[in-house]
Design a protein around this nucleic acid. Sequence first.
RNA 1: GAUCUCGUAGCUCAGCUGGCUAGAGCAUUUGACUUUUAAUCAAAGGGUCCUGGGUUCGAGUCCCAGCGAGAUCACCA
Length: 518
Amino acid sequence: MRFALRNRRTMAEHHNEQEEQRRNKLAEIRQMGVNPYPATFTKTHDAHQIVTGFSDDTQEQFADVAVAGRVMAVRRMGKASFCHLQDHSGRVQIYFKRDDVGEEAYDVIKKLDLGDIVGVRGHVFKTQTGETSVYAKEFTLLTKSLAMIPIAKEEVNEDGTVTRYDAFADKEQRYRKRYLDLIANPEIKDVFVKRARIITAMRRYFDERGWLEVETPVLQPIYGGATARPFVTHHNALDIELYLRIADELYLKRLIVGGFEGVYEISKNFRNEGMDKTHNPEFTSMEIYVAYKDYLWMMEMTEDLLATITRDVNGSDIITMNGTEISMKPPFRRARMFDLFQEHTGMNLRGLSRDELVAAAQTIGVPVDPSWSAMKVLDEIFGERVEHHLVQPTFVIDYPVEMSPLAKAHRSEPGLVERFELFINGKEVANAFSELNDPIDQRQRLEEQARIRAAGDFEAMVVDEDFLHAIEVGLPPTAGLGIGVDRVVMLLTGNDSIRDVVFFPQMRPERTLSDGHE
RNA sequence: GAUCUCGUAGCUCAGCUGGCUAGAGCAUUUGACUUUUAAUCAAAGGGUCCUGGGUUCGAGUCCCAGCGAGAUCACCA
């Protein structure tokens, strides 16, 4: 009966047996004169502090503690009961004895359900079997839970590991109802704590160097800075179409034009494209622009940044992904794109025409569509033959100009731009260039994009006249970098799905009942 | 968008080539038990078998369509 869970809100009158029982208990508790939803509770300790801090030597400090949390297990034995409370730090066992906690409180304790939130005051002790527990003297119901919660039984093994029986494992329900996932599988909180630490470390790194965190528009009249399809929305008062940003690049460069010499933004971007293990329609990116620097400098900054973050959150330079060790210790390998082609295909693809590239692809057995552009063919060969080799951090540098309409022409290599992409574990993690600041060149590049767009490629860029005007006013030499924050989090937490590093990944809407409940 | 796999109780799952009133463990209810710990013991309740069609004497099971999910591929960060 999946839809019973899914459409609870639309079926307010329809409760199953167990939910009906909980509502009855709620009424009974109210009749006993107990408020099932009081306003506050004063905690003195976290579960973790008690479990790790209590000993024969410290028992004085734990003579009077107050803890609160969600009831995760109850074992009743007539006039005494044990339960496990779970708070943000972990679990602790509570011992309730009717003669100590009082008969009225014990009557409420008898009605406790898994998922209720309670507060307990008492002293800490060790049970006969040696588990550190709180011996309750006072009990307060803090929140009566009315909905069923998929709490599984757990066994703590001798080595301290936990075996969970019949755990809440349905990926769909875990993503849709993340609050249940967090309750039932609390260890996933570590991923999100680490995510927060990564972002904090990144911010600290930039702030320490004097670069300014800024905010630029999410709603943009012209989208740009990347090749992607946008989400479209409508502003009623202005009666115009607006686009959710696909990148913040063009606005951040305007700020460098305006005189800031280092700006960064950590922001959600939105791309109206497919979803899979590494793509969510909204995702977090970090973009930073620093004046008077180039992509060579940016490579050093990037490897130092990522090494610093890795050490901060993982305490080591080594990360392990599906059993593969990846060293985040600088310097990272640097390889020119066409050298990598040479290395992994044995062919020199530099300067080949489209037809020659198609022929080359066929020679090495990469299937290509003859209608594709030269750049598309090159990209395909890279994806098929090169990318998955780039497990250890590798800067791929010096891309063809056609692939990079916002990057500065290479200072010594005609036809290439000063750009790098950083690959780790076979996936792109960062993208950066010496920013194009030649206004004539920039205009030509965007106009070329417009032609590609007119020819039917909706991902090609749109000409942004105001941005071009800003470049004409004068952008100093500038290095820019974008990092896929979700991907960094995936790497540092060992997850291979973006859905496991985002609290609420995008899901198809659930089906509603056909009979008009909605 | 394509292909494959899956959808049975609150949770985790059985249910063979279609055949009695659809099962188990946990969870729930009632009773016993004042240091238990996957507590135990006794009894009980709980199901639109994802949805809609079809085949059949008979469908959880077979067929078709739809919805949702996961995996793989394609596009992208």
